[in-house]
Amino acid sequence: MVQSGTTLTREDTENEAVSGRVKWFDPVKGFGFVISDSGGPDILLHANVLRNFGQSSVADGARIEITVQRTDRGVQATQVLKVEPPEAPESAPLADFEQLDPEVMAQATLEPARVKWFDKAKGFGFANVFGKPEDVFIHIEVLRRSGLADLQPGEALAIRVVEGKRGRMAMEVNAWESALSR
């Protein structure tokens, strides 16, 4: 880290690529921190940098690739390059998906959608797929397994939807921008 009062050189301000894990991210506070795989100080991840990637949140423990810049205030992320969901614990699949045919789930296509509402405390919310009248149920566990921590009303998504015993359900949720590159 550069000491206060020191002039930054070009080398200090150049961006470098870093891989790591999200330590924590709070969309209400507008920031969080990443722990680099190679060690060193925590890396500040500002909400604006995450939004430029097309996401409003990221799950704790998610794998992340970023570019960073060393400043007189510490190491900060300047761009998000890739986000992968946290490793799923060795647990049973969600009960809502147990009865579904794995082939049907594998063939579900990404559909453009917009968040209607999502309540993290309740653990669920709904989205609307463009051109379809039915709401799509989104469970917090599906969101977490997709690498996201929260959703905002109006947020654009790309989701994989299946018909469950209680209606249309998201089995995967992606930020719109990240889904475009798939």
Score class of each variant (00 low, 15 high):
Ser4Phe: 15
Asp119Thr: 08
Ser38Asn: 13
Glu98Pro: 01
Gln3Thr: 11
Val68Gln: 06
Lys82Gln: 13
Ile66Tyr: 06
Gly125Pro: 01
Val80Leu: 04
Ser91Val: 15
Thr13Glu: 00
Phe118Lys: 04
Ala158Glu: 09
Pro89Met: 05
Asn48Ala: 10
Glu141His: 09
Asp72His: 14
Ser181Lys: 14
Asn174Gln: 15
Gly147His: 12
Thr109Phe: 05
Ile138Tyr: 04
Thr71Asn: 10
Thr13Gly: 00
Val2Glu: 03
Arg182Gln: 14
Ala170Arg: 02
Ala47Gln: 06
Phe31Pro: 02
Arg168Gln: 09
Asp26Gly: 00
Ile66Cys: 09
Leu180Pro: 02
Gly40Cys: 10
Lys165Gln: 13
Glu134Val: 01
Arg114Cys: 05
Pro93Ala: 02
Glu84Phe: 08
Val34His: 07
Ser57Phe: 02
Val115Met: 10
Pro41Glu: 15
Leu81Tyr: 06
Glu87Arg: 07
Val142Ala: 14
Leu94Ser: 13
Ser38Arg: 14
Val80Thr: 03
Pro102His: 06
Ile64Trp: 05
Glu16His: 13
Ala127Trp: 00
Ile159Lys: 03
Gly5Lys: 05
Leu100Thr: 04
Met171Val: 13
Thr67Cys: 06
Ala179Gly: 12
Gln107Ala: 09
Gln69Gly: 14
Asp72Gln: 14
Leu44Val: 13
Thr7His: 10
Leu148Asp: 02
Trp24Pro: 00
His139Gly: 00
Val83Asn: 00
Pro41Leu: 11
Gly154Arg: 08
Pro112Asn: 07
Gln152Asn: 12
Ala108Val: 04
Glu155Thr: 11
Arg168Tyr: 10
Gly167Arg: 08
Arg166Ala: 07
